[in-house]
């Protein structure tokens, strides 16, 4: 912004009147192409502010040479960030206008916990499914949309039965794999 500050007729004295300050604030928000206050503002990765229609036209004019009009850094339609001020909601949605302004990108914050699949109840089933590999395929293939029954509470007869069954399936699976290897 050295150019802009240079161009000022005279620097306002420190503690000057509010009007001068307002004027300077406005200049800070001028589009670098039309030199007017930026509307449908977007900012490039190199930090330069433009009206989206102005920048769009600039990029259209030189499709082979997409550079920032201020610092000539590489620039592209995908790599500009729209600025949504507070007053923006009162205006019509800029994306309805031609040319459409690229949308902002929202990335969800990363979750703090580990892999959710290895939680307490459900994960128990899942690790068995993987262990009994060929049969796990069947269960997951044929049970479309059915919710898996939750594990039987520890200590009951059903729990013992399930443990026994899964052990049998595990051995069957191991034998099956050995048969595949040695046959």
């Amino acid at each position: 912004m050295a150019e802009t500050s240079e161009a000022k007729p005279s620097a306002p004295p420190p503690g000057g009147d509010a009007g001068e300050d307002d004027k300077r604030d406005e200049r800070m928000l001028e589009c670098n192409i039309c030199l007017d206050t930026a509307r449908d503002a977007v900012v490039s990765m190199c930090g330069h502010l433009f009206c989206w229609p102005c920048l769009h036209q600039w990029l259209e004019t030189r499709p082979s040479r997409q550079v920032c009009p201020v610092c000539k850094a590489a620039i592209s339609r995908e790599k500009v960030i729209p600025l949504y001020g507070r007053g923006n909601t009162k205006q019509e949605d800029p994306r309805n206008k031609v040319p459409p302004r690229p949308a902002g990108q929202r990335t969800e914050p990363e979750s703090a916990g580990g892999f959710p699949g290895f939680g307490f109840g459900e994960g128990f089933h899942m690790s068995f499914g993987i262990g009994a590999f060929p049969f796990g395929v069947f269960t997951s293939t044929f049970n479309f949309g059915d919710p898996r029954p939750s594990a039987a509470p520890r200590g009951t007869a059903q729990f013992e039965e399930e443990q026994f069954l899964s052990k049998i399936f595990l051995w069957v699976a191991i034998l099956f794999v050995l048969w595949l290897v040695f046959a």
Binding site: E3, I33, C54, W58, C68
Partner: peptide, 12 residues
């Protein structure tokens, strides 16, 4: 010519 940039002005 080819190095024109829209942010240049008559002054610059």
């Amino acid at each position: 010519k080819d190095q024109w940039a829209a942010a240049l002005t008559l002054r610059t």
